[in-house]
């Protein structure tokens, strides 16, 4: 009994509330006769394609920048790299790999510049990051129109510029998901996706335990202390910003292949928020985070969202209402999570 109590304490109240909410939704699934296995399959995919985006919060928080609300910067790098991979018709796993490699190059440059900027605005990184993300997304709206892409598959059939939504069917739609996929009963297990997520989480976990990772943690949690020990906190912050941007770029590619589309223009605008909300629900704060927080948080948050969708449409079958309901749930959770930011438990 005492053990359970301690375990619950360790888990924390916000997670208990969220888990309780998830339980209610699952009960609703049962009552409303929604096909359970389909929901479960979707749930696994959703968690998988979002986890790397959430993981991008880890280096930024540990290096002292806080939540990376500038995640759209990384996402733009990933999208740009994705477009290049499509332009040259890389398909299958090769396509995903190429996109990732190209995005890493962009991300390093962008992340470095972003880090320099953040070092100039210490104390208001989150606000500046948010608006930095917004501005770049808007700027890129012009860029998507004028960049010299020629592949007809990704351009508007008439006029100039790239399409709003690009279906990946001819390139690498669900390539990772379907790699070594098998079924347990009706439930599809996307082995490739799960393995990819595991690799990224594992690498970040190793990073946290490396010398660089520990120095970064020190610089993030007490810049004065690290200065005393001869560590340049600003440099650690730049490294954190680069890593975060790189993960953001890779994250959106994994997201897009699992989703089946690249979405350009204003689509990346709000993408930082679900990632931030996920890690906050997982127990991270603006100054503290672990890989465990990321995994747990993404699991809970994305599960709720993917279960809430069919429940909402079963309750409100007519038209738009279910979509409204779903948006309310998703933003409600984000709001709840943000209210927990920076609060030690």
């Amino acid at each position: 009994m005492k053990k359970t109590k301690r375990y619950i304490q360790k888990l924390g109240v916000p997670r208990l509330i969220m888990l309780a909410f998830l339980m209610i939704l699952l009960i609703a699934v049962g009552i409303l006769h929604i096909p359970f296995t389909l929901t479960l399959s979707q749930c696994i995919v959703r968690v998988g394609i979002n986890i790397v985006l959430a993981l991008a919060m880890l280096p930024s928080i540990r290096s002292g920048i806080g939540m990376n609300f500038g995640l759209p910067l990384g996402i733009i790098c990933g999208l740009l790299a994705g477009m290049i991979s499509l332009e040259y018709n890389f398909t299958g796993l090769m396509g995903i790999l190429m996109a990732m490699l190209i995005s890493i190059i962009f991300s390093i440059i962008v992340g470095w510049l972003y880090g320099l900027l953040l070092n100039k605005v210490k104390g208001s990184e989150m606000m500046v990051g948010t608006y930095m993300g917004f501005s770049i997304v808007s700027l890129m709206c012009i860029a998507w129109m004028i960049l010299p892409f020629h592949n007809t598959g990704i351009r508007w059939p008439m006029g100039n510029g790239l399409r709003m939504t690009i279906t990946l069917e001819q390139w690498y739609d669900r390539a990772l998901n379907e790699l070594w996929m098998f079924k347990i009963g009706e439930v599809e297990i996307p082995t490739g996706l799960i393995l990819t997520c595991a690799v990224f989480c594992g690498v970040m976990w190793l990073f946290c335990r490396s010398r660089l990772g520990i120095r970064m943690l020190a610089a993030g949690s007490n810049p004065e202390f690290s200065k005393f020990s001869g560590i340049d906190a600003n440099r650690q912050r730049i490294i954190g910003s680069i890593l975060s941007t790189v993960l953001g770029g890779i994250g959106i590619i994994i997201y897009a292949q699992g989703f089946g589309f690249y979405q350009l223009y204003t689509a990346p605008l709000m993408m930082a928020f679900p990632a931030v909300a996920a890690v906050l629900i997982g127990g991270a704060t603006a100054s503290k985070i672990s890989v465990g927080n990321v995994v747990l948080g993404t699991l809970i948050f994305q599960s709720i969202l993917s279960v809430a969708a069919p429940v909402a449409s079963a309750i409100f079958p007519e038209g738009n209402l279910s979509e409204v309901f779903r948006t309310i749930i998703s933003n409600g959770i984000i709001l709840y999570a943000l209210s927990k930011i920076g609060r030690e438990e």
Partner: peptide
């Protein structure tokens, strides 16, 4: 400057040697 308050005693003790 003396301590990493939100890290463990262990990290605090070994940090300089490690870093």
């Amino acid at each position: 400057v003396g301590l990493l308050l939100d890290q463990s005693i262990l990290t605090n003790i070994i940090f300089n040697n490690l870093s």
